[in-house]
Amino acid sequence: MTRIISEAETMARLPDFYWSLERYHAAIKAGVLTENDKVELLFGKLVPKMPIGVSHGKAVKKINRVFNRRLPEDRYTIGVQDPITLIDDSEPEPDLHVAKGPLEAYTQHPRPADILLVVEVADSTLATDRSVKKLNYAVAGIEEYWIINIYEHQVERYIGPDSAGGTYATREVFKTGDTVTSLHLGAFAVEELLIE
């Protein structure tokens, strides 16, 4: 049994296969990766996406409804679990994002210069959203990142990306009764963004 454990540990240390953005897109185009492959590209690695639970799905739908009521479609494009193309061979699929301009203006996935806000809804994904996802968005220079924290009933707002440090200069926490004012999208009552 010891030999098997030792060999398994050796295998776990083998280098991972690096996926460039071009290779990732080619695999999708060729049908090697399909919508049934629940993965996203982060820093050149294919990372499994967590299954969406009832609370998570309900929160995404609620926020999408709020954004669609408030943000005119001729000025904004709202993505729901759609890819955004970042630097460092990353193409995450955040729960929501808001990009400049109408949908018709996009012939490719939005890039950092297009993106006004990225939102992740966090339940079982909270640790990843506060670490790897935050790092990914900060390195790419995403100006504003929100985590809708289901279990702690709060909105975490990150602004002032430090690309070199991979973090944000400011983290603010908003609870029920508070108002979150986005850099580009106006003010939102926390109750509008949280589920009961």
Rank of each mutant, 00 (worst) to 15 (best):
P110G: 01
D162V: 10
M50P: 00
V47N: 05
P92L: 02
E191P: 01
S163H: 10
R70A: 12
L42D: 02
P112M: 00
I195M: 05
Y24T: 01
Q154G: 05
I78L: 06
E22S: 10
V98I: 13
T107H: 15
H109C: 07
I148A: 15
Y137F: 12
L103I: 09
L21W: 12
R70E: 13
H184A: 15
G44E: 09
D16S: 15
H56I: 06
A122T: 06
V39L: 06
V121L: 05
A187W: 03
I5L: 12
D114C: 02
A187I: 02
A99D: 02
M1Q: 12
N68V: 10
Y18F: 15
L135Q: 14
H184S: 14
V54C: 01
K62D: 08
E144L: 04
G186W: 04
M1L: 09
A30E: 14
T128Y: 15
L42Q: 09
A138Q: 08
L193A: 02
L33Y: 01
T176L: 15
Y18V: 14
Y18A: 05
I195R: 01
E73Y: 12
R157I: 13
L193V: 04
L14K: 13
F188H: 07
L126C: 01
N149W: 12
V47W: 02
D82I: 00
I148K: 07
G57M: 05
I87V: 14
I115W: 03
L117V: 01
T2D: 14
E172L: 13
V80A: 12
I78G: 08
T34S: 09
T107W: 13
E40L: 08
P102L: 03
S20Y: 06
D114K: 01
G44W: 08
T34E: 00
V66E: 13
K61P: 00
R171D: 05
G177E: 06
D74E: 15
